[in-house]
Nucleic acid binder design. Structure first.
Length: 353
DNA sequence: AAACTAGTCAACCGCTAGTCA
DNA sequence: GTGACTAGCGGTTGACTAGTT
C-alpha cells in the first residue's frame, strides 16, 4: 500500500505553535461541521495547516471536554495502575482518565511519574523494584529506602493526605476487605459472577470476556497466588499483576499481609498490587493496608480495575457480602468472626447454586 | 546581567490499521 | 484484491520557561 504524504507535498503549510486566530478558525469550523474530513478541513476552514495537525490540535487541546490543569492524586494512581496493565499504550490509559489526552498523560508520565518511580526504587517499565533480581543497587537513586522521606516525598505525602480518602479507591478497599474475609472461600463461579457484574471502565469498551478467562484457585493455602490465563496486552502485565507470585510468607492465614515480613523496600505484593503500589507511591503505606491486599491476591489487575462502585451497589451478591461484613464489624465477643461461620458461606454457595 | 542547564509540554513524525470504492 | 484515504498511535523534537551558576 502506498501512503500518500500528508503534509510534505503540500508546500506553504504552516508548522509549529498554533495562534489564537488559527484556533478560532478551527473551532468555528468544527462547531459548524463537526469532526471528520480532516484532510479537506484546512482548506475549508481557511487554515494553512495539514489535516493531521488540525486533528491533533483539536484532539489534544481544543476539544471542549478536555480537562486541563494539574493531575490529581486519583489520576496519578490511575495512570500508574493502568500503565502497569497496558504499558506505554497511552491511548488505552487515556480511556481510563476521562478528560485527559494520551499526549498529556504520556508527557506527565515521562516528566513526573517516571522520575518519581525511579526515585522510589521502582522500575517504571516493569513496575518492579529496581533492585529485584540482580543487584542493581548502584543504579538506585541516593535515597532509595522508601522509609526515608525526601522533601519531595513530603510534598507527595501532603498531597496524598489531602486526597487520601477518595471515593474511587474506597470501593476497591471495601472489596479488598471483603476479599480478605471471603477470598479463600469463594469459588471461581462466584468470583466470575462478581466480576461479570462490574461495569466497564469509564469510556472503555471492556467486556466481561477478558475477565471470565481469569482462572482463580483459592482452594488451598498455596493458592493465594494466582495464575491468570488472560492474555496481557504487554509483557509488563506479567510483572504488574498477581500473576507474579507474591511471597506467601508475606501473608497470614487469612491472606493478610504480614507486616513483619516486609522488607525495607517494596515487597513483590506491594508492587504488584496497583492500589498498594499507589499508596506506596504517594508515601501512604500504613496499617490500613489490610484493605488493599485482598482481591489482588487472586485477581489480575484488569479484573481488579473492573470493580467499581456500582459493582457494590448493583450486585446482590455484594449486598449479601456487605451485610455479612457489617455483621462482622459489629461483632460482639460471643459471636464468631464472620469468616469462621460456615453458615454464611453455605448461604453464599446456595445463592449461586 | 548573561550564560547555561533542566524541566515541561505542544506539536510533529513515521508508522499501522481500518474503511471504502 | 488493490489502492487511496482517514484515523489514530507511540516516540521524538524543539520552543519556551524557570532555576542555577
Amino acid at each position: 500500500m502506498v501512503r500518500t504524504p500528508c503534509c510534505k507535498a503540500e508546500l506553504g503549510l504552516k508548522k509549529g505553535a498554533w495562534t489564537p486566530e488559527e484556533d478560532q478558525k478551527l473551532l468555528s469550523y468544527l462547531n459548524r461541521h463537526g469532526e471528520g474530513g480532516w484532510r479537506t478541513l484546512p482548506e475549508k476552514a481557511g487554515l494553512k495547516r495539514c489535516g493531521k495537525s488540525c486533528r491533533l490540535r483539536w484532539a489534544n487541546y481544543l476539544r471542549p471536554d478536555i480537562k486541563r490543569g494539574e493531575f490529581t492524586e486519583d489520576e496519578e494512581c490511575s495512570i500508574i495502575s493502568l500503565h502497569a496493565l497496558h504499558g506505554n499504550k497511552w491511548s488505552a490509559i487515556a480511556r481510563g482518565l476521562p478528560g485527559r489526552t494520551d499526549n498529556e498523560i504520556k508527557n506527565y508520565w515521562n516528566t513526573h511519574i517516571k522520575k518519581r518511580l525511579i526515585k522510589k526504587g521502582i522500575d517504571p517499565v516493569t513496575h518492579k523494584g529496581l533492585n529485584s533480581g540482580t543487584d542493581k543497587s548502584e543504579n538506585l537513586p541516593e535515597k532509595q529506602n522508601v522509609n526515608q522521606t525526601t522533601s519531595d516525598d513530603d510534598l507527595d505525602n501532603d498531597k496524598a493526605k489531602k486526597n487520601n480518602k477518595n471515593s474511587g479507591l474506597s470501593s476497591a478497599r471495601f472489596l479488598n476487605r471483603v476479599a480478605n474475609r471471603f477470598g479463600k472461600r469463594i469459588n471461581q463461579s462466584v468470583l466470575s459472577e462478581i466480576i461479570a457484574s462490574g461495569p466497564p471502565l469509564a469510556t472503555t469498551s471492556h467486556t466481561t470476556t477478558t475477565t471470565t478467562t481469569t482462572s482463580v484457585s483459592v482452594d488451598s493455602e498455596s493458592d493465594k497466588s494466582t495464575s491468570s490465563s488472560f492474555a496481557p496486552t504487554s509483557n509488563l502485565l506479567c510483572h504488574g499483576t498477581v500473576a507474579t507470585t507474591p511471597d506467601s510468607s508475606n501473608f497470614d492465614v487469612d491472606g493478610n499481609l504480614n507486616p513483619t515480613s516486609s522488607s525495607s523496600t517494596f515487597s513483590d505484593a506491594s508492587v504488584n498490587n496497583p492500589l498498594m503500589y499507589c499508596d506506596n507511591f504517594v508515601g501512604n503505606y500504613n496499617a490500613d493496608d489490610e484493605d488493599t491486599i485482598g482481591f489482588s491476591t487472586f485477581m489480575n489487575d484488569e479484573d481488579f480495575m473492573m470493580l467499581e462502585e456500582s459493582c457494590v451497589d448493583n450486585t446482590a451478591f455484594m449486598k449479601e457480602l456487605t451485610r455479612f461484613l457489617h455483621e462482622d464489624e459489629n461483632d460482639v465477643v460471643d459471636v464468631p468472626p464472620v469468616y469462621e461461620r460456615q453458615d454464611i458461606f453455605d448461604e453464599i454457595d446456595n445463592y449461586f447454586g
